[in-house]
Computed example of a mutant assay.
Amino acid sequence: MKAVPKVNTDGLYIEDTLVDDAFSGVVPFYSYMEQGITDVLSTTESVTQPEDEPSNEPESNISGYIIGIPVTPGLFRPRFDLAAWNAYETALTAAHDSFQQALSGWHALPEEQRGDMPVLESPPQPTLWIEGLTPEEIEELTRPQPIEPNEMDRLGSEMVTRELEALELRQQNEAQGAQIVGLELRLLSLENS
């Protein structure tokens, strides 16, 4: 088993899901609608009914896709480009059909006229995982957020403020004490004279 990404119908990453190790490609997953209740995943048995009778099976809707291609690291909100995937699948099919035609033509030739066997040339796989956020949204996410102080920081700040106030009061006391001593000395010198 391996974990592969699961995306919604817009290609935006939802979560990882476990699949068989051999899984690759892109496959849809469905939600079922029954009597107005949506997004209830269930399995139903196939029952053959006459064509003129309405079916009691729930209606199925594509809810998203399971992607067998790993998510490109470094994306803020990964989005799978479903249009690019479909174009790539179409190009692969066209390349395979062209190879089959060339191979059939090669086999139809006599051995002495064949030359080199045709080679399947697959188109390069495009970048399928892209950023799902706009540059403005990324800037908003990456902007440094103001840090709100916790209670310990707040108490520490208050304690430093109180210690500074106490130091200022001590300095004022010393200055006033020195003035008082100076006045007492002047008074003693006046009394002695």
Score class of each variant (00 low, 15 high):
Val47Gly: 00
Thr48His: 03
Gln49Val: 05
Gln49Ser: 03
Asp52Asn: 05
Pro54Ile: 05
Pro54Gln: 04
Ser55Ala: 12
Pro58Asp: 05
Glu59Ala: 10
Ser60Gln: 15
Asn61Phe: 09
Asn61Leu: 07
Asn61Ala: 05
Ile62Thr: 14
Gly64Ala: 07
Ile66Pro: 08
Ile66Phe: 05
Ile66Trp: 06
Ile67Ala: 07
Gly68Trp: 14
Gly68Cys: 11
Gly68Gln: 09
Pro70Arg: 02
Pro70Leu: 01
Thr72Phe: 00
Thr72Cys: 01
Thr72His: 00
Pro73Val: 00
Gly74Ile: 01
Leu75Pro: 09
Phe76Thr: 10
Phe76Trp: 10
Arg77Cys: 04
Arg79Pro: 06
Phe80Met: 01
Leu82Arg: 08
Ala84Pro: 13
Ala84Cys: 13
Trp85Pro: 04
Trp85Ser: 02
Trp85Cys: 00
Asn86Cys: 03
Ala87Glu: 15
Glu89Cys: 14
Glu89Val: 14
Leu92Thr: 07
Thr93Gly: 02
Ala94Gly: 10
Ala95Arg: 11
His96Ala: 13
Asp97Val: 05
Ser98Asp: 15
Phe99Asp: 06
Gln100Pro: 07
Ala102Pro: 00
Ser104Thr: 14
Ser104Val: 05
Gly105Ser: 10
Trp106Thr: 04
His107Ser: 09
Leu109Thr: 10
Pro110Trp: 02
Pro110Val: 01
Glu112Met: 01
Glu112His: 04
Gly115Ala: 08
Asp116Phe: 01
Asp116Trp: 01
